[in-house]
Design a protein around this nucleic acid. Sequence first.
DNA 1: GCTTGATTACACAGGTCGGTGTAATTAGAA
DNA 2: TTCTAATTACACCGACCTGTGTAATCAAGC
Lengths: 187, 187
Amino acid sequence: MPSAEKTDMKERILQTADRLFYLEGIRAIGVDTIAAAIGISKRTLYNHFPSKDALIAAYLERRFVKARQSDKSPVEQILGTFDSLERRFAAKDFRGCPFVNAVAELGPKDRAVKKIAVAFKESRRLWFRDLLLQLDVDDPEGLATQLTLLVDGSIAQDLVRDDPSMARAAKEAARVLLVNAGVAVAR
Amino acid sequence: MPSAEKTDMKERILQTADRLFYLEGIRAIGVDTIAAAIGISKRTLYNHFPSKDALIAAYLERRFVKARQSDKSPVEQILGTFDSLERRFAAKDFRGCPFVNAVAELGPKDRAVKKIAVAFKESRRLWFRDLLLQLDVDDPEGLATQLTLLVDGSIAQDLVRDDPSMARAAKEAARVLLVNAGVAVAR
DNA sequence: GCTTGATTACACAGGTCGGTGTAATTAGAA
DNA sequence: TTCTAATTACACCGACCTGTGTAATCAAGC
């Protein structure tokens, strides 16, 4: 009973599923493909996940990474978000927001997928909002929402255009919104 | 040889394909489903379209509607875009941007789909840019890009959240960007 | 009435999909 | 060694998919 390898196997399956689901699409990748890519039998995969739906759910939950702590200033963290985005856009393995893609792929009926997608979007909005609260702006809730629009907008645009500069355009717009809210932004 | 009905048939197929592809997803809908929904045989569908891929292409091209003329002021047209968006969000048959969804569904390899998606995004950016040119702003190209980020961002957010107010948040941000560019915006 | 072209029903090919059943095999723990 | 649990190979199921072949039917123009 290799307890270490058992979790490793589950994690290996998840890693491969993550890569294939994200890069090729959830509907485009079958369980056989995932098993073959790892070099395990399909039976083993089904010993760790009861169904493909469960694997999809685990994939999305694993993508739901919490925002990390940072000692940078709130403004730097907010604007730095778009620098990170630009770096991710430039990577050739970037293919949009996995949650938006999953909702688009699986349709409006899949309540489970939509639920986690909403939770993810809201968590990022709250991350922005908490930073804005430290900046004493008038409407942190509304401004946080607007920043998420710029994030998701640049992601969607880069997905179809393959143009990482969309992140910089979003950053410029974010800067204008911050300045308009009375935040002192280094130029 | 019903020449009028022949084109009607092709249009009827396209209308049904549009509805089902958009609402349920391209991969989720088979040609049998489309034919059955119209009440025609699958053979008839294949008499009008050589393959499902051709039907998908026709569907996307039909979605590529040119921007209509308007006698409203450029500012009203720009901000009115977000009012239209909010109305579309509120409709229960709204399910995101068909081009972004198609790219997300069909993967990065489908060059044809990506091409028309890029063309659509660029046409909307140019529509914004031409309006901004009439307003004599400093950087019409960049500002037009930023406006498209707000449009696509609100679409993506509404897709997962089902929250039409995202359009209003985008409109507020757009107003700030316009004011910042020196445009006189009615308040 | 005859011709012509569109449409029909229907079977079917060839493939992929998610998921299961089963018996053999492996490897670690006792 | 012996027991146990994971993994393996592999066949198989039913469902769905895109696409085709065929022969019959229908309707309109001449």
